[in-house]
Design a protein around this nucleic acid. Structure first.
Lengths: 187, 187
DNA sequence: ACCTGAACACCGTTCAAGT
DNA sequence: ACCTGAACACCGTTCAAGT
């Protein structure tokens, strides 16, 4: 007898994660403007049109790229004390910026509102309260220190300090960390 | 007798300043991605190709746009004391960011190396020394407070704080200004 | 279900030609 | 000197068609 199994499913060649990984690799090698649907597709052995199954359009692909960047920031080990965990998070953000210098500035231009981003922000607020920042002040302190760290990391990634030797930039980072500590303890 | 006056010069319809003004207006209305050679040209009553007399290519046009933005930042009045002049400069940068929210984030992505930018930086370094910051420390302090102010202004312009009421964002700005003062006086 | 070829509107850029 | 029309390679996106 005839078995109507419906349309035969094709083997799934790519998924959203693969698209974002490929896009990130292209951006790292050739900058944001090198990220075109055709180039990302070719990297996956697939046509440009195949991407539209997994991202809504190019804007969605770019938004996904900053998500991917946030996933890249390692969450600090839970064994450390709160001040160390905060410092580790900052160092992780800076390292991510330097690993993906072309993509990182998008983080300031396209504010992330994903669950991932919110999770990191809530962690910082919680750590601040553990340190002793009053619950009423913690959100504001979080915004201020995030602005400082993001601003520094984006500046460094974009080359705003490029004409200084690395030792000078590292010293700048240390100075910024001290200001962050000052911001937390000031009251 | 015959006078060979050479090729007859056409009336000059546009110049570089007009191109940048038009591009800024387009960006303010429709965002950076609305800035195309054709649209900027149309705004000037001219074809897209006419722009190439006045900007090298589109990247040069975008670089010119951040120049224009820096010109927009008012230099503080000379009558004020150095601390007030520094505050006025910061407020001017924030106001410029809010006037041109789509263009401002380019400032962090495309570090300005023009004479205009250098002039502003040198002014800040000079003001810091007037306030009493040692000459050896002044450049570093300038980089730190510029990073904080630029980072905040870019974040606000890009909408990173958009879900907070204006009064909260203004209070954040005031808090940042206090941290700037702390950074200057700490030693 | 997932991918592709063909097609469309639009984009940046060049160059010879017009005034 | 300055601007334009025509042309080119490339881009994002759609949709009907293939498996």
């Amino acid at each position: 007898m005839a078995c109507d199994t419906g349309p035969v499913p094709r083997p799934r060649l790519i998924d959203r994660a693969a698209v974002l990984d490929a896009a990130l690799a292209v951006a790292d090698e050739g900058g944001i403007e090198a990220v075109t649907m055709a180039v990302v597709g070719r990297r996956l052995g697939v046509s440009a049109m195949a991407l539209y199954r997994h991202v809504a359009d190019k804007a969605d692909l770019l938004d996904g790229l900053v998500e991917r960047l946030l996933d890249d920031v390692p969450l600090p080990e839970t064994g450390l004390d709160p001040i160390e965990r905060l410092a580790a998070l900052g160092a992780g953000i800076r390292a991510t910026a330097l690993r993906h210098p072309h993509v990182f500035p998008l983080l300031l231009a396209r504010p992330a509102t994903t669950a991932e981003a919110r999770q990191r922000r809530d962690l910082v607020v919680a750590l601040l309260q553990e340190i002793g920042v009053p619950a009423d002040d913690a959100p504001r302190v979080e915004r201020l220190i995030s602005t400082m760290v993001l601003g520094f990391a984006a500046s460094e990634a974009a080359g705003r300090f490029a004409h200084h030797p690395p030792a000078v930039i590292d010293a700048d980072w240390d100075a910024l960390q001290e200001i962050v500590r000052l911001t937390i303890s000031r009251r």
